[in-house]
């Protein structure tokens, strides 16, 4: 995760002011778009679909071929019928809705707090210096280990799940924003100062926009982490959410049910990640296209 964050920060730094190669021809960005455009054509989509089909086929027919029993690895068709059963009798949509809600709430709160804390510590280097050992300790602490504690505090409600997500989302976003504020080109700040900018104007016109690319790298990481936090919270206690269905399916020895739940969780994660990407494309529209392609 740390490595991922470093990479994210670096991507962001690359997007920073003055990073685009000097003397590069004006059409560079457009050329890059054209190349990528050709790469993600109909052929690629077809190939991806073929991979999915091959995977599903292997899942359906290979396990029986090797005498793997269905309670270890249920074939795709079994999982599919289990999905319909769960929709009808296990309130799959209800539990999915609760998990999705917790993910959204935890992600929104965690990223808002993380960004805010990043900005505050960025503006107060002394405070950062004083707090840095504790921030580091909290960052190293496995956040999901807090889940039982939160359940003990807040009971079998949605709140402990949201809290785990908040905690796990908070750090990558805070660190990215803080690093970005620290690495804003001091000459940019001097430029604004030479125009007699106030502290607030410097933040609003220079520092804040400069942190947006790393902030979005943090949000992408956060979107996937939020799902992890929520599921662990649900695994620990309560009778709501997809995490509960996981435990329930396990208890019943219903492997297909566990599979369906994992797929549902993945879909929620994909939706959260996709939403971040959509917003990012709109907000960071000024970046060269190629930089959006980092998955």
């Amino acid at each position: 995760m740390a490595v991922e964050r470093m990479a994210a920060a670096r991507t962001a730094a690359g997007a920073g002011p003055g990073a685009a190669a000097r003397g590069a021809p004006a059409h560079r960005g457009r050329l890059a778009t054209a190349v990528h455009g050709a790469g993600s054509g109909a052929g690629t989509v077809l190939a991806s679909a073929a991979v999915l089909l091959a995977f599903l086929a292997a899942w359906e027919w290979l396990p029986p071929l090797f005498d793997i029993p269905a309670y270890i690895l249920p074939p795709a068709s079994k999982v599919w019928s289990e999905f319909w059963r769960m929709l009808a009798t296990e309130r799959l949509l209800h539990h999915s809705g609760i998990t999705a809600l917790e993910v959204v709430a935890g992600f929104a709160l965690g990223s808002a707090l993380g960004a805010l804390m990043g900005f505050v510590l960025g503006a107060a280097p002394r405070a950062e210096l004083v707090l840095s050992p504790y921030i580091l300790a909290l960052q190293i602490a496995p956040k999901v280990a807090f889940a039982p504690l939160f359940v003990m505090w807040l009971g079998y409600t949605v709140y402990p799940k949201i809290l785990v997500a908040v905690l796990i989302v908070f750090f990558p976003i805070m660190v990215n924003v803080l690093t970005a504020i620290r690495t804003v080109d001091p000459d940019l700040v001097n430029l604004a100062r030479s125009f007699s900018a106030t502290r607030w104007q410097i933040f609003r016109m220079i520092e804040y926009p400069a942190t947006l690319p790393p902030l979005f790298s943090g949000l992408r990481i956060g979107a996937t982490l939020a799902v992890i936090g929520v599921v662990v919270g649900e695994l620990v206690g309560g009778n709501i959410g997809l995490g509960y269905l996981l435990v329930f399916g396990e208890g019943q020895g219903n492997t297909a049910m566990v599979f369906v739940t994992i797929i549902a969780l993945t879909l929620i994660g994909i939706a959260a990640y996709g939403a971040v990407i959509l917003v990012e494309r709109r907000v960071l529209h000024y970046l060269p296209r190629a930089q959006h392609r980092t998955v």
């Binding site: 997007a15 920073g16 002011p17 003055g18 990073a19 685009a20 080109d185 000459d187 940019l188 430029l191 604004a192 125009f195 007699s196 900018a197 104007q201 016109m205 220079i206 926009p209 947006l212 960071l284 000024y286 970046l287």
Partner: peptide, 21 residues
């Protein structure tokens, strides 16, 4: 260094000082 802000169009960059003032 040109110190152009990558998130501002060329016109918005030229306007920076005036906007601050």
């Amino acid at each position: 260094k040109d110190l152009l802000l990558p998130w501002r169009s060329i016109r918005e960059n030229v306007e920076l000082g005036l906007e601050i003032r």
